[in-house]
Design a protein around this nucleic acid. Sequence first.
RNA 1: CGGGGUGUGGCUCAGCUGGUAGAGUGCUGCGUUCGGGACGCAGAGGUCGUGGGUUCGAGUCCCGCCACCCCGACCA
Length: 481
Amino acid sequence: MAEKITSRETDYSQWYIDLVRSAKLADYSDIRGCMVIRPNGYAIWEKMQAALDRMFKETGHVNAYFPLFIPESYIQKEADHIEGFAPECAVVTHGGGEELAEKLYVRPTSETVIWASYKKWIQSYRDLPLLINQWANVVRWEMRTRLFLRTAEFLWQEGHTAHASPEEAQEEVLRMINVYKTFAEEYMALPVIMGRKTESEKFAGADETWCIEAMMQDKKALQAGTSHNLGQNFAKAFDCQFQTKEGTLEYVWATSWGVSTRLIGALIMAHSDDKGLVLPPKLASRQVVIVPILRGDKQAVVEKAHTICEELKKSGIHAFVDDSEQNSPGWKFAEYELQGIPVRLEIGPRDISNNICIAARRDTGEKQKLTLDGTLATSILSMLETMQQSMFKRALDFRESNTFEVASYDEFKSLIDNGFIVAHWDGTEETEAKIKEETKATIRVLPETPDFIAHYSINEPGVCIYSGKPSKRKVVFAKSY
RNA sequence: CGGGGUGUGGCUCAGCUGGUAGAGUGCUGCGUUCGGGACGCAGAGGUCGUGGGUUCGAGUCCCGCCACCCCGACCA
């Protein structure tokens, strides 16, 4: 097969593109910046959606759907919001062959159209909190796009909540960023640093933005999810007030939070290797592929393979058999490694007579013999669990060994291409902008994860590496996607 | 938007100083194979991105347009 993946060492970007295309996760379309998500890629999204949707519902949220089109007048209601998003919007000017009286923006995010509805639904403190999530597509006319990481149209979920007090809104913001953290770590096996964004990096229209940041294998940072405290900004813009218990009128406090198909890009960039995709078992729609070695009594081998498959399925393992005869076992091994199937079982006549099969783990390549008896499913389940844990551990070790604490700007400059930098910052936008201009590195996050804070003594005062002025805390710098 | 690149079978690309379309891979059929991307034989498949120009003749030269990709400035 000619489909060779460029090695990560040779060209990381090309590796990523080759992998996405040859594993059939996504394809370019003829529409600028828009990709086709192919079944293999969409399956990952469906697994993500299922887990996230369950977590949202467990925290009291419900799903709804709002229009794709947003009247220009809505977009213009919140000043920071329009400034942040208008330049990258697609705008519809005609409909039904006629020029529209008012232009319609294709949503880049739905705060405005949702708050136009919330205004109608909220009158009393009894209507609060309002906890709604929407699964949708959005469009941002990005100048430069990259498969999954930044496309003109992408799929995401956006939660939009309304609360009666700032405390309750803040609690929601934290609750949801923690849901994202849990999801990233437990499902994606992706360690993340949770914390706040600086003023200049926050969402257009938010008072405060919280995020989770992850390290990719090229040591760059990727923002994997955000949760915004919108204060009363949108409530004021849409004149959404409620009557309190005491009978007074107050503007509603709001939050919004989202993750997108970018997570698929994060998953690829964090775990995969030169052979192809490596999927954490919890996000693999196909967890075990059984490859029968078709020689000798083929019929018996194929039957045994299917018997094993049925047995695994009964234990809740997503297994399948590839008993097609047009491709050799070697071809199948390579193909399913490319597609990231977590475990491969090889079974041939030799194994059947020894009452065993060979199990190979995708992440490490390790092969081991498993006995073909009632313990097989249990062995596979524990192998999947071990794999999930060990992928997380490996990613965490990688991040830790590529995170450096520095005390001077010279050190900063010499290490910034090697990973994350933990350093003191004087808290000013000027310093942040200067460092960005000089090094292209940005402040990714003001960490709030307790173990991270403890590990790097984040809250210990010191002096800013750039200005030498006093600094209350350390922050995380990195180059990012 | 600035810089660079590319448009030729499904895919990746070759095609020089113009002479009428090629490879690898994939696809279809048959047979032999099968424990790390097997092999043989026989097939199908292209108005060469698009519009104009030069020429007896254009995939090839010239001009315009369009699209996509890559590198920057902006962003989940």
